[in-house]
Design a binder for these strands. Structure first.
Lengths: 333, 333
DNA sequence: CTGCTGATGTTAATCGTTTAACATCAGCAC
DNA sequence: GTGCTGATGTTAAACGATTAACATCAGCAG
């Protein structure tokens, strides 16, 4: 059995209260000699306070929850995860990750969040799985929450909005204005099988609409590099091949570049390529990758929103922050 | 305030015990009519049992902890994380991730694990930060644990060993046998600043030793694609450039291929390249990437080791599993 | 000497859930 | 009727840490 405060108290010949006063670091006067006895006893037994008991009593878990659609793969998500972990460490919090990769998991995730597993949550773009209703339900439970999303969320939590739709449209319009006529969109699998389009897909269709282009060329493959390569190869071999591809992720776009090169197509001559995400790798590709994405890959401000809430005494008003995104025209378009 | 079992009990006109019996699903007989009243009350109030209280009483958190050196980036780590999350979901567990990216964090992580934050832990290659002593300390606390590592760990937990050193050596020997004379190693940053070499570095030096080669060419850059590209470019521009590069990761190796191409070097003619990890992307690179790594990217068996332990009644003997790795010679060497 | 203050320690209530133990009652065998 | 059994419900004791409230005592001003 793990040692309890009681065991430490017995060994140090004091009461459990004293043990708690010494170890929890509150400034309750404790005689130097007593304090030392307690510390020695705790060390000797290898005592660590039980988190469950502490949480129950203090109504604080010292944990934050990161809610994500997918696990890894996306450098931007990784960066957010890292920033969250690092900040959490500094503040003495642990991070619990909840993967919401389907409709069903969303319901379960909401329940987990409402069970008081963490003191706050950072929700990263979990598509439509976490509906506004579900988010509202969680917020209503009193959980401090920050949501990173490409749309406003009217439920009383902080929202970091990305202008994904607008900037994606801008990029596609650029392609059209340049004279490209057959612009394809390479989508993530989940973008194809749901009612509500993602920002990037919406940007694509919006731009085509504005320019009166009827023809939509939408293929899957953006989920991973290999799928993107094969999907692009097939697409570019078709008799009526596109003269531009807007890929839902930079990684996919880079695979498109590889496919084009392997087929002997010149970029941007024969084919223009634009990705989403503005990952660093786009700077070493050949040609450099045009992309749509955030200017800075730094989520410390987002994370701070959450910890501000955690440290606030009263409830804070819901804030909405607009994350700066831009269309970066580089060599591939 | 979140509703408690007590509130539900009041609403349903029963005792809290009955509420617990109904909701926790134990097969304690409860009259159908009573059960329904409780269920209705719980639904009406949106009741979810408090995790802290439940954990305290049951001495089970329904959580597992994933301990990792880095967050994301490595496809293999991602896959492990995903497999763990999915299996955990199935078993009704949540996943808490602990990032151990430095010596200091290791001590803290050990304390967190010992505080009973989870029912079991899956430790993924956290280099030397988590020393055997620290691991032993955690295991001694009674925490079921599975460690994935490139060496045996004699502390009473399950170990999934990767023959990273041996297979790396094999790959480098292959380069030497082929007649390459200036073989460089591109390392992760952390590999350069610590006493104990990683398996891949050890494999590299071992192979050189065996062939009586004195000259070590070790550069950093394996941590990310951009750094690898620049590091490789610099290396390949040097007057006495290497004729082979063994990169500590496939991602880095692929950047080396890009750098070589941009410099007009032919692969494998002018330069042989071998990576580590056997990621799928190596199949779409041009030329295809030779690599050292696991045959299958599937960690369900590893995860099962952990859940076997969690579900076992008594203590299980420590198992050691050897993960199959191999040197895959493809187009780049 | 009296009464106050601050330092130091202890007692006991509390957080919300689980669960062993007990109470009650109906049904039934004898 | 008596006693047993099983169904159904309640009571109360945990789980381990925190913390308000209280006890004690030394020092000291008046």
């Amino acid at each position: 059995m793990r040692p309890t405060a009681r065991r430490v108290a017995e060994l140090a010949q004091v009461s459990v209260a004293t043990v708690s006063y010494v170890l929890s670091g509150r400034d309750r006067p404790v005689a130097a000699e007593t304090r030392q006895r307690v510390l020695d006893a705790a060390r000797q037994l290898g005592y660590t306070p039980d988190q469950a008991a502490r949480s129950l009593r203090k109504r604080r878990t010292q944990r934050v929850c990161l809610v994500q659609a997918s696990l890894g793969g996306n450098p931007s998500d990784e960066r957010l995860a890292r920033d969250l972990h690092e900040t959490a460490d500094v503040h003495g919090y642990s991070v619990i990750t909840l993967a919401v990769y389907s409709e069903g998991r969303a319901r379960a995730a909401a329940d987990v969040l409402r069970s008081g597993i963490a003191d706050g949550a950072l929700v990263n773009q979990t598509g439509d799985h976490l509906t506004h209703d579900l988010l509202a339900e969680i917020v209503a439970g009193g959980l401090p929450m920050v949501v990173v999303r490409n749309e406003s969320v009217p439920v009383g939590c902080d929202v970091v909005r990305t202008p994904e739709t607008e900037v994606s449209a801008e990029a596609v319009e650029h392609l059209l204005a340049e004279g490209r006529t057959r612009v394809a969109f390479m989508a993530h699998r989940h973008e194809l099988y749901r009612d509500h389009p993602t920002g990037r897909l919406l940007g694509y269709t919006t731009a085509l609409d504005r320019h009166g282009v009827d023809r939509r060329i939408i293929v899957s493959g953006a989920d991973d590099r290999v799928a993107a390569y094969h999907s692009a190869t097939e697409l570019l071999r078709s008799p009526d091949r596109p003269d531009a591809i807007f890929a839902a992720s930079d990684r996919a776009a880079i695979s498109v570049l590889s496919a084009a090169r392997d087929l002997g197509l010149s970029v941007p001559g024969d084919l223009a390529v634009i990705g989403v995400g503005n990952i660093d790798e786009g700077l070493i590709s050949n040609p450099q990758l045009s992309t749509v994405g955030p200017l800075r890959h730094d989520y410390t401000d987002v994370v701070r929103l959450l910890f501000d809430r955690l440290q606030a005494d009263g409830p804070l008003p819901a804030r909405e922050v607009l994350r700066p995104w831009t269309f970066l025209r580089r060599g591939s378009s």
